[in-house]
Simulated scan of single mutants.
Amino acid sequence: MYGERDTSTADDDDAHDGDAGDDNRPIYVTSGLLDVLLDMSESAEPEPLSVVLTPTRAGAFEADLGIDAETPVLTHFYLPEAGRSVTAVFGLDLSTPAGRGRARFHAHPQGPREPTKRDDFAAAVLVAVPPWERMAVRAYDRSGNRLALREIDAVPPEETLGDVAP
């Protein structure tokens, strides 16, 4: 089944879901990516986890997702360990190609349920806390304003090495 599923919860703390000032567009993420991120978070516990995320345009999917073709859908991630030694020496994340990784996922095993000053920020930030379930994931913009998180039950298009830009 293709389409979107709202992963926001209905408790009072979530009443401001989507209240993000001027830019309150939801963040779209595939079910498969959420599964992988939550599994990685559980495996890393009790350590926090930070993962660079990358999108695919909705129009690139084989199925109609019911959203604008130019809308980014988070579909892929860069392994957190990739380039760690280079980052330690130079203090820069050189493992993420330029122009990629405009979103980040952070797992906070001891909380809080929102971004912290220790997190690496991006245009979109997803934060998860235990229990490692979909309902424990929230989306924020660069300023820490809460955004709606919409799950897309679709498989991203297959990529080959020929798809990678030089």
Rank of each mutant, 00 (worst) to 15 (best):
E62V: 15
G144H: 04
E47A: 13
V89Q: 14
V125L: 10
G144T: 03
T7A: 13
Y78T: 13
L74F: 12
V127D: 00
A82V: 14
V51Y: 04
D153N: 14
D68A: 15
G101H: 06
A136F: 01
V125F: 00
D163S: 14
P46M: 05
A58K: 11
E62I: 12
P166T: 12
K117M: 07
D6P: 09
A58P: 08
L65D: 02
L49Q: 02
L65I: 05
I152Y: 04
F121E: 11
N145Q: 14
E158V: 12
F61D: 07
T75Q: 09
H106T: 01
T7G: 01
P112G: 06
P131I: 08
R118G: 03
D64A: 14
T160P: 01
E114W: 03
S43I: 10
H16L: 03
F61L: 13
Y28I: 08
T7P: 07
D23V: 07
V137T: 12
R84T: 09
N145D: 10
V164A: 13
D119A: 00
S8C: 05
V52Q: 07
H76L: 13
P156Y: 06
D22T: 10
A107T: 01
D119M: 00
H16W: 01
M40V: 02
Y2A: 15
I67K: 09
A10E: 14
S8I: 06
I67A: 08
M40E: 08
D68M: 09
P156G: 11
P46D: 01
D93E: 14
I27T: 15
E4Q: 14
E62N: 15
V129T: 15
A128G: 11
I152D: 01
H16A: 09
V125E: 02
D39H: 10
A128D: 03
E151P: 05
G101W: 04
E81M: 08
L94M: 13
A98K: 12
Q110H: 13
A103Q: 06
G3D: 06
V164D: 06
V129A: 07
L37Q: 01
P115T: 00
M1D: 10
A136M: 04
R25W: 05
P97F: 01
E42I: 03
D153A: 14
R57K: 15
V52M: 13
P109F: 03
A10C: 10
A60Q: 15
G162C: 02
G3T: 08
L53I: 11
G83Q: 05
V73Y: 11
V52N: 09
P156C: 07
T71C: 11
R118L: 13
Y28W: 13
T7Y: 09
P109H: 07
G32V: 10
A10F: 12
G59T: 07
V137I: 08
S31A: 15
D141Q: 07
D22F: 08
V127N: 00
D6I: 09
S143T: 13
A98F: 12
H76T: 13
M1L: 12
R104A: 06
L33H: 05
D22L: 12
V129D: 00
V125Q: 04
P72F: 11
N24S: 15
T71K: 11
G3Y: 05
G99C: 08
E158Y: 12
P112R: 09
I152V: 15
D6F: 01
A44D: 07
N145C: 03
R150T: 02
L38I: 01
G162P: 01
T160N: 05
A122H: 02
I27M: 05
S43Y: 04
R5V: 14
G99T: 06
T96R: 12
